[in-house]
Design a binder for these strands. Sequence first.
DNA 1: TTTCATGTAATATTAAAAGTTACATGAAAA
DNA 2: TTTTCATGTAACTTTTAATATTACATGAAA
Lengths: 156, 156
Amino acid sequence: MKKDTKLSAALHIILHMAEVDGPMTSDRLARAMRTNPVVVRRMMAGLRERGFVTSEKGHGGGWKLNCDLKTTSLGDIYSALGSPDCIALTHRDENTSCLVELAVNVALKSAFEEAEALLFARFDEVMLADLSDDFHTRFAALKQGGTPHDESKSVS
Amino acid sequence: MKKDTKLSAALHIILHMAEVDGPMTSDRLARAMRTNPVVVRRMMAGLRERGFVTSEKGHGGGWKLNCDLKTTSLGDIYSALGSPDCIALTHRDENTSCLVELAVNVALKSAFEEAEALLFARFDEVMLADLSDDFHTRFAALKQGGTPHDESKSVS
DNA sequence: TTTCATGTAATATTAAAAGTTACATGAAAA
DNA sequence: TTTTCATGTAACTTTTAATATTACATGAAA
């Protein structure tokens, strides 16, 4: 299976929007993410339905953040993206008549569910503001340290 | 991505072998699993390398269990299968120069690793004998209850 | 009325797992 | 010794789900 990257992409986009005044177009976001504007729109559609972002057509249009970073969690975003499957293992036959396979399924299912629950709990704990703060800390450290990276490279 | 079913399949096969005297051929196992004998061999190769099963060519050949169900864990089997990736999410760019993306990656990575660690811990806790016991309990209950399923259907 | 931007359906590409084919190796049976 | 049976494995095909692309509709501002 190809792994899902929507959560990673959505968070990246949200934090970029948080750093910018005014709307960002799908084209601009897609270039920053090295992907396609339609992919951006498709992904953002879920966030718009939940009210985390808004969009405007036409000149001066684009996407704007519409949520409080302090109270919006990674879990909120993950859920808005449709909660893509996060466990890459499964059993072959969900409704088996083989008692051996049933015993295997039961054991694996409970392990998968526990791991998934832990992941969701972590997602719920971490707020967008935590990520934003982490970025600002790194950015300040970079400027203080006087490393040779220019700012534009460090935020897009 | 297509989800991985090797752990489920391997456990199913192992528990079936535990119920049978003498070797099982890949063909027979493949029919029971509704898959292909080559797929069975490929999967079993990992188990053979770790000594959990043995194989013999020619007449009367096939696969035999060669491990103690009480001391062999799901984790041992998972590892013998090559520890296939169990988290279906990832980030887009592992080595990014964007500090925003870096902050996202760090947060997600730690969440993924915690969930994976929990899954592995569960795998290590559960022994093959636990699954076998569960099967035998279900099988005994089925016979006692006098339900209309025949035995052959209930174990293959 | 033209340009810009989103909205979305339809289609194509890609990556990873599973399945298949083909043939080599070796052991037991005839 | 020759045939049959079974594993061993490389090469290739199929399948599935995510991602990417194309095409066109909608609507807002210049």
